[in-house]
Design a protein around this nucleic acid. Structure first.
Lengths: 349, 349
DNA sequence: TAGAGCCTGGACAACGTTGTCATATGCGAG
DNA sequence: CTCGCATATGACAACGTTGTCCAGGCTCTA
């Protein structure tokens, strides 16, 4: 009676059409609960004959171990979380995939979440992942205050920040050399004779955007070029705004002869605008884009390695989990200037 | 004594630096366990004063509810799984993001896994997700036999297949009109005077690849054009093979005047090869690619809506979960021919 | 003022698994 | 033939949460 009652228990929270449990398997195979557990987990100490009987019952019932219960008992979930900005962005896809590969090598699954560049949503996601008891967290910050993660980190959740540094807490960070990359890209334009160079980037509250702007300013300053306010445009990177910004720079009273784009989305829009222009405007963009080499002229870019960012961060995460007591570190990956033509155009007025 | 013993229990599986539990919060707030549960879940029946005390204890201890235990008790995980081919592919990023958005709207998290086009890995991933007791599963099949999911589906795991149909089981499927799209694309080339048209696609065991090939054949047959074997090349879509295939078609004894590419990766490689040719070869590709409009000539494509695929599948999944007793259905989304120039080039011999 | 009814709070079991420990069985050695 | 030991198996508690049910204290009404 209790056995059947359990299955039809009115107040049972059970869903899933009453999946069979180890108890059911044990009953069917005529063995003890623990023996089933042994077989399921490949533990030694079970006769081949017993194992066969258990396996038969498992197959007949369609049993699959409930990892939720396992997690509860063991404490580790073998899963890690990744909070990024937008999985649909071609920059984050490869990054996520790289994290996944490292996780896989460590027998862990990956839970992704997109913050849509919203700090509240980032926090909500990160904490939801902690509630699921992910073993670790890779975060591409949208906000600039991560103290909300302090209790979690203290409680043992491994944490690594990527692409942008953590705010107000001490944690591992893996970054690209945004400052140096932008500086080199702009210097490249200067070396080809440009002085009036525009910069179109993302909102300055985003660390990468601020760093790249800083790189732009540094390159200009190194060359002794005073920067006009009308040459810089920072804000959301939707096509409309970027398009207007580019057009204003190109037609204003002091028109630029070259443009530096702060990220991949800005790049695609600016390239589009430039294609419509009659005069040739030099261009360098941050982030590589597909087919950049086939455009006329080829698009010169400062490339960062998204996969390497993800891989490095994930490896760092698992080193934390393996108990390598490491002090938080800031790892900076180099960028690479890829010249393809657009950055080598001479100034035309 | 038992209280402290519990915390330092030598054989406790506890990791996570002994996170506080509701029991700890209850002790600190001087209330019962269930009262804490009520506060945490916003259930009614707690005086403001009691709630304040509990909340205080929660903050002080850095308590966060353990969702593993909650899942175990409640039966639902509020998470769904997505098995796809490669998150780094620009086609799957937006698809995954769309699924995530729908999941989010239903309060669920998304766990991604990449199968790398390997049927075994697909199965391994899907079953691992089932062991985690995801509520539902969206699968982009790599293999062609999904009977291994039967026990899971019977046990209540909602399941929807996307992009390619399920093999040997009856389940919901959301597809693009691969056949029609390819047929229209090839017909477009024929309408512009081409008769010798090459087809380069993925391995024919992949459903989409086979369907697109079928569309190619149908268009050719409709026009009364016999297809030469040397015009077709099917296999892995890595750049080397595709490049060789394209070059052979262009230089063979019976050279093609147009090429149809079976997916986005083939497209980028073929476009590259064509850019190196002196004569103009017409081209149409399956899947849209970024900046296709800016190439010279613009790349004509048969576009499918990856986000719509993901959204449709996820919505279907949650309808299953909401208990709408729906019989498995096959939903086909239309494709769209986007003409940009490359498909409208006349034949040149 | 007593009884009925409501509201708040707590004790307890159950979810499905795994670690520990105890028992049973069989076998070899003395 | 018996003791001891190794090996196979099972009973039981615990992981942290939530659903049920009950107790105690309060208010309101007759």
């Amino acid at each position: 009676m209790p056995e059947t009652a359990r299955r039809t228990d009115r107040h049972s929270g059970a869903r899933y059409g009453n999946r069979p449990t180890m108890k059911d398997v044990a009953a069917r195979a005529g063995v003890g609960l623990k023996t089933v557990s042994r077989v399921v987990n490949g533990e030694p100490g079970v006769t081949p004959e017993t194992e066969r009987r258990v396996q038969e019952a498992i197959d007949a019932l369609g049993f699959r171990r409930n990892d939720s219960a396992r997690v509860l008992r063991k404490g580790r979930t073998a899963s890690i979380g990744l909070v990024l900005e937008d999985l649909a962005d071609p920059f984050y896809g490869p990054l996520s995939r790289a994290v996944e590969e490292v996780a896989r090598a460590h027998g862990a699954l990956l839970i992704n979440g997109s913050s849509a560049e919203d700090p509240d949503r980032e926090q909500e996601l990160a904490l939801a992942l902690c509630a699921r008891r992910v073993d670790g967290l890779v975060v591409i910050p949208a906000g600039d205050d991560h103290r909300y993660l302090e209790p979690e980190i203290k409680a043992g959740v491994a944490t690594v920040f990527v692409d942008r540094p953590a705010g107000r807490i001490d944690a591992d960070v893996v970054l690209s050399d945004n400052f140096g990359g932008a500086r080199d890209g702009v210097a490249h334009l200067i070396a080809h004779g440009h002085r009036r160079i525009g910069f179109i980037g993302d909102m300055p509250r985003i660390h990468t955007a601020a760093e790249r702007l800083r790189g732009y300013r540094a390159a200009m300053e190194d060359a002794g070029i005073p920067v006009e306010d009308s040459w810089m445009s920072l804000g959301v990177t939707d096509p409309q705004r970027v398009r207007r910004a580019a057009e204003e720079m190109l037609t204003g009273p002091d028109p630029v002869t070259a443009i530096f784009a702060g990220n991949n989305r800005v790049t695609v829009t600016v390239v589009r605008v430039l294609a419509e222009q009659s005069r040739r405007v030099a261009f360098v963009g941050f982030d590589d884009i597909e087919l950049a080499d086939l455009l006329q002229p080829g698009v010169t870019v400062v490339a960062q390695d998204a996969a390497a960012l993800g891989r490095t961060a994930a490896e760092r995460l698992f080193r934390q989990l393996d108990g390598d007591l490491i002090t938080p570190e800031r790892i900076e990956l180099p960028t690479r200037l890829i010249t393809r033509g657009s950055g080598e155009l001479p100034p035309t007025d």
